[in-house]
Amino acid sequence: MAIEGVKAKEQGKVYVGNLDETAKRAKQLLIGRLKLGKAVDWATSFSLWPVHLTTSCCGCEFAAAWSPRFDGEQFGALPWVGPRQTNLIIIEGTVTRKMACAVKVTWDQMPAPKFAIAMGACALDGGIFYNSYNIVRPWEIIPIDVYIPGCPPRPESVARAIVDLQRSIRSKGIASKWVEEGVRPDKPLVAPKQDVCSWWRG
């Protein structure tokens, strides 16, 4: 059935309205007029769900940080399964060339506002593997908010990093501004210099 006034090319498509426009207006109303910015920052800071991406052996201490002794869940951070539902990525140690693509793709799949923590000396600048031919510095691929030194860092320092990130989200209002403006206010997104996924296409 042809609908009048609709281009022939677009016949048969399902129309759900202009979602982008609606979302923009809703954002303006909620954050601009109703001053919900503080609430958004509060909610985001206490709901930092790290995505399940174990890049290297710091995953041991990452796992320990969510174990009963250190219990990362008390800060509201719950490791979750898929990137679509999370807003925090914790790079656990060395990122190899093969893994770099996974890091990049996972980061791209996460919905904004999203944050990143780099864990371990390897994620800072290579650490003990600084001269290896197979590693990539994670800050070349994604923007990092907090670095945790140590090889591996103790679970307490992971908790500390999460608390630090929470404070900076609340004090700088990163999340609310990000939601309102659509771009991150204080940090540009990183455009990787090298094509980390080149090997995939062969």
Binding site: T55, K98, A102, S132
Partner: peptide, 14 residues
């Protein structure tokens, strides 16, 4: 495999 290959055998040689 190989997502965590950190070239230990090569680094061990140097």
């Amino acid at each position: 495999m190989g997502y965590v290959h950190r070239t230990m055998e090569k680094l061990g040689e140097i």
